[in-house]
């Protein structure tokens, strides 16, 4: 598959003795939107964290936009420049203002002039609908606002791929909505997205494919309608039963 932007094959990872990822094969096409779900501890976070080298894998290969992840710092750098990530706990920099959070990496990594970095950051802050908070500190914002800043901060690096690790799990229901809206918006703009989430509404609305993981393996993958209507494996059925009964 030469047109895939992420290509993972034969991926295996251990934490000490513990085999977290077992023989994962996954190809993601450019502009594809993938939702990953599965029970707690199944290895979802670990899988997407391998893609930008927040975790190191032991076997198999991960190729991102033509560059294979290796121990070469140059390769890691260039992949991290293409891949943005949004975390469950936001991880904004509390000592910097919202605007500074968004301009830090463009200035120091992409070497943009400050004014250009700021104009661009304001553009993305408008896109996530909080331009008026630009000069506040993260501690002064609500959770939903913080998560939207985190999304804007990633977008400022012009990534080709965005990884989301349970971006709404730490939020109250009304804030979940505002963050999901921003993500839907982003999906419709053609961003390649890998989203770990249990928001099944989001999955059926925007996902091209839903992947179900259990015990470090990809158990099932399908287009959303098929995945929700006709789950094939028993484990998927059990999981969907638990999620949807909430």
């Amino acid at each position: 598959m030469s047109d895939s932007i992420i290509s993972i094959s034969g991926l295996n990872k251990w934490f000490g003795e513990f085999h977290v990822l077992r023989d994962i094969n996954l190809d993601v096409a450019s502009q594809e939107r993938i939702v990953i779900c599965g029970p707690s501890g199944s290895g979802k976070s670990t899988l997407i964290r391998c893609i930008n080298r927040l975790e190191e894998h032991q076997e198999g290969s991960i190729i991102v936009d033509g560059t294979e992840l290796s121990h070469d710092i140059k390769d890691i750098d260039s992949i991290r420049r293409e891949v943005g990530m949004v975390f469950q706990q936001f991880n904004l920099f509390p000592h910097l203002t919202v605007l500074e959070n968004c301009t830090l990496a463009p200035i120091w990594v992409r070497k943009l002039p400050r004014e250009e970095a700021e104009t661009q950051a304001m553009g993305y802050l408008e896109r996530v609908r909080i331009p008026d908070q630009a000069n506040k500190y993260p501690g002064q914002l609500s959770g939903g606002q913080q998560q939207r800043v985190a999304i804007a901060r990633s977008l400022c690096m012009h990534p080709k791929i965005m990884l989301f690790d349970e971006p709404t799990s730490a939020l109250d229901p009304e804030m979940i909505k505002e963050v999901l809206e921003v993500m839907v918006d982003l999906a419709q703009s053609g961003m390649t997205m890998l989203v770990v989430t249990h928001e099944m509404g989001f999955a059926s609305q925007v996902a091209d494919r839903v992947i179900f993981m259990d015990d470090g393996q990809i158990v099932e993958e399908n287009i959303p309608s098929e995945f929700f209507e006709n789950p094939r494996s028993d484990r998927t059925k059990l999981f969907l039963g638990q999620i949807l009964s909430h």
Binding site: R80, R81, G84, N91, F93, L104, A105, W108
Partner: peptide
Amino acid sequence: GKGQTEASGALGL
């Protein structure tokens, strides 16, 4: 927190 290092690394610093 470790999250700060990770967020910074993910941004390419």
